[in-house]
Design a protein around this nucleic acid. Sequence first.
RNA 1: CGGGGCGUAGCGCAGCCUGGUUUAGCGCACCUGCCUUGGGAGCAGGGGGUCGGAGGUUCAAAUCCUCUCGCCCCGACCA
Length: 554
Amino acid sequence: MFFSKMLIPTLREVPSDAEAVSHILMLRAGYIRQLAAGIYIYLPLSLRVFDRIYKILREEMNAIGAQEISLPILHPAEVWQETGRWYEIGDEMFRLKDRTGRDMCLGMTHEEIMTWLAAREIRSYRDLPQVWYQIETKLRDEARPKSGVLRTREFIMKDSYSFDKDEEGLEKIYQLHAEAYKKIFTRCGLKFYMVQSDPGMMGGATSHEFMAPSSAGEDEVILCSSCGYSANIELAKSIPHKPENMDWEFEEIHTPEKRTVQEVSNFLKIKPEYFIKSILVISNNTPILTLVRGDQELHEKKLNRIIGKFRPAHKQEVKEILGVEAGFIGPHNQKIRIIADSCLKEGVFVSGANKQHYHVKGIRPDKDFKAEWHDIHIPKEGELCVECNSPIKIERVIEIGNIFKLGTKYSMPLKAFYLDEKGQEKPLVMGSYGIGPARIAAAAIEQNYDKDGIIWPKSIAPFDVEILPINVNDIKTMEVAEKIYKGLKEKNIDVLMDDRNERAGVKFKDADLIGIPVHIIIGEKNLKEGFVEIKDRKTREVTKVKVEEVLSLF
RNA sequence: CGGGGCGUAGCGCAGCCUGGUUUAGCGCACCUGCCUUGGGAGCAGGGGGUCGGAGGUUCAAAUCCUCUCGCCCCGACCA
């Protein structure tokens, strides 16, 4: 491919509304343009990257026996109504009507449609298992599209769905997917972790996420380097360090106008880790008192899984329900439900006294209050692993894939049944598995760039080699350039030739920006001695090579 | 949806506070010519703007006021 024939609109300056590295570089290097919030145009260079990612996806999916099919993006409402998601999902679903007034929606995922198909076409245990996948567009009306291509409203996803006769079969195909995913991300040149993830409010099911470490990510995971425990921070458990046990007697202390943990801590000269932080929340119109240690924060998602939807109580409500101003509330003598973080189970603490301007010191769990114990704090770096007691690390990550055990959540309502060996009708046991190719590309950039531009992993680069003839008006230069170009193409190497009549600086800058892994630089001076240069984009190492020997290196 | 920021040429920005010396400007990009060819060259000439939109105040609005649309960031959300 010749540079002059390809749409590669590079930008010298950083577009003002881009912040994430991958966003800036994809814009500057001429890979994408933005049409509207969360809606992108993919230019020729990015299509080449995607094609390479798709190829890897197909190879690895086919290798585990998955079959590619293609489902519509436009769906009739009825299918979604049957599983109830038509009603459960809110504004995130794009909805529309056809000309006859029939309700339709744009697919944000394809469990319903795949199950619809399975319900019609799978009848016998002899047909099982089946794994179907597609690489198709999804549409979600995201509340906040962000970070360029990382969170968009329209995006392509590789999604596969497995149908089995039982849990055992599901487990097997789930593991096959996990292995395939590891191969895929490894082949794409990414650093990644497979972590436990929140299966959502549906309960029961297991799920894992594949996470590429990057500061541009929206998620955080905790990692234990000693036993390998890894989980999304939304459900990750951890053990906070235990402070030395104090042998305080129960006593009320006057703490005038001292409300926050920090204020009381300073006032009493007692560290926050000896405090019980009491937070009143309202769930289902019922007040619940939640307790975390003074140096911890309440993890709303974790609490959400225990008590369902909730909101913090208003100041006025605290006074009405507990009879004392927020800031002086505590767990003892409370009659309402109490949920406390496990790290408060042992020890002697300070908390509000349920009396204006007073706190109590020497409060003991179980003796002075009863609670349901759960891990409800936000984990912090350096806390201990629940599995092996080693210090944990926290890293920011981009979610690049997930795998889900669905069970019969979709097969039941959509009546996707099969007949087993005994002629008994049973629901298909399902799993679903997703990968976002655009996120792979963006994560690859986030993990591989320098001040001059992108450094693509070889496997997903838009081209393998870029040839840079410095002076296109020099006949000898062009002769050699074209010879190498042809030779590489014959070897099935994807090569971009910068045939533009531009100054050397412009070509070098653009080549570095675009990030093709290998550059062959053809300059007049070197050529006089029979040499060209081969430059490694990543290491910037340049080697002089005899013109005749170039092709043998590839 | 809450909080913050920003909309002036393709891109990056100045001008706005304090309305009129602005025929709306600068850098880059673009077009023509010369020159140049190893890290985004130089000189000369040139094209490109309903100042996001609507309404209002005023003799006069990019500039002040009201409404509205769009985009970005933080948070909530993310089946």
